[in-house]
């Protein structure tokens, strides 16, 4: 394994400066639970590691008058156990609890989950496995092993916090070398399995996630083969706020999370399912069969709909 430079900045400014100084070959280490796997499987070879664990300002949790602000280095375990999050934003606590195992949740972070790499059954495999089957577009190959196409990668976004936060209408703060920007969380995601995340600018770091959209109703469910091990095959998170706006976010079945936002009385169940399915580009790149996953989208949304009505 090649040698890399390792940095442990104490402030966000320092981290941004380091990233700016190494523009094309750095990775930010948060919990490291995802990146370390990619390094082991020789999917990435970071030359510069910028470890964010010493930056205390990224670890803050603030919930005041239902305004929630979370630093990106808050661990999933902290989200699960925080009594204010359980009280005001239970959908977020439920989503965090659905991720991985209790031990991994003590290391894995909110920021890491927002930027978790997309998954595909032909990409997230050992180096030897990929060598034997043939490399894909997302790796070093020139063809998608799922579709046979030459241009598009359909790897799935598998974050579970993201649909919950998008259903909560969350926004993020991004610090770059030129300043601080705010944007809706959903704008972070690009429906392209090769790009995955919107470039954040030179040295850009997501510093904070915030929302004040406390829901009056919420619903969250995740489909996977084994409860404690697997990334999602389908996650649906939905909220209804006090103005009767329904926000349904579906993840795990497309290259980016899919959001449908509508008045709860302005749509039918059939119309809602149709809107979601039209927006999802689901292909056969998970161990659960494609037909089953497509049917489960309808089943989950029907279950959600019945709960809200």
């Amino acid at each position: 394994m090649s040698t890399s430079s390792y940095f442990l900045p104490g402030t966000i400014d320092e981290a941004v400066s380091l990233a700016k100084a190494h523009p094309n070959d750095h990775v930010f280490y948060a919990g490291g639970t995802d990146i370390q796997l990619h390094v082991k499987q020789r999917l990435i070879k970071p030359n510069t590691i910028i470890d964010l664990t010493a930056i205390e300002s990224l670890k803050s949790v603030s919930i005041q008058k239902k305004n929630m602000k979370l630093g990106t280095m808050v661990t999933l375990d902290q989200i699960v156990k925080n009594p204010d999050i359980q009280k005001f934003y239970p959908i977020l606590a439920e989503a965090a609890k659905s991720i991985a195992t209790p031990v991994i949740r003590k290391s894995a972070t909110l920021g890491g989950n927002l930027k978790v790499s997309n998954r595909c059954s032909f990409y997230n495999q050992s180096f030897d496995w990929r060598q034997s089957v043939g490399s894909c577009l997302k790796d070093t190959g020139d063809i998608c092993q799922v579709t046979g196409g030459l241009n598009h990668c359909y790897s799935r976004n598998v974050s579970d916090l993201v649909p919950a936060l998008i259903a909560l209408n969350a926004r993020i703060m991004v610090q770059t070398s030129t300043g601080i920007n705010e944007m809706p969380l959903i704008d972070l995601y690009v429906p392209d399995g090769l790009i995955v995340h919107t470039p954040l600018g030179v040295g850009g770091i997501i510093t904070e996630i915030f929302t004040s959209d406390e829901p009056s109703k919420w619903w969250f469910k995740k489909l996977r083969l084994r409860k404690s091990l697997d990334f999602t095959s389908l996650t649906v998170a939905a909220t209804v706020n006090k103005k009767d706006v329904l926000r349904v976010c579906v993840n795990g079945v497309s290259m980016a999370p899919v959001l449908v936002e509508t008045g709860i009385n302005d749509v039918t169940l059939e119309g809602l399912i149709l809107q979601v399915k039209r927006a999802c580009k689901t292909v056969d790149n998970d161990y659960m069969p494609l037909k089953y996953r497509r049917e489960m989208i309808s089943a989950f949304i029907t279950d959600c709909w019945n709960t809200f009505h």
């Binding site: 490291g32 370390q36 796997l37 003590k106």
Partner: peptide, 10 residues
């Protein structure tokens, strides 16, 4: 922690 995915440098 899972030592197989924890860098020693940390």
């Amino acid at each position: 922690v899972l030592s197989c995915i924890t860098p020693t440098i940390r």
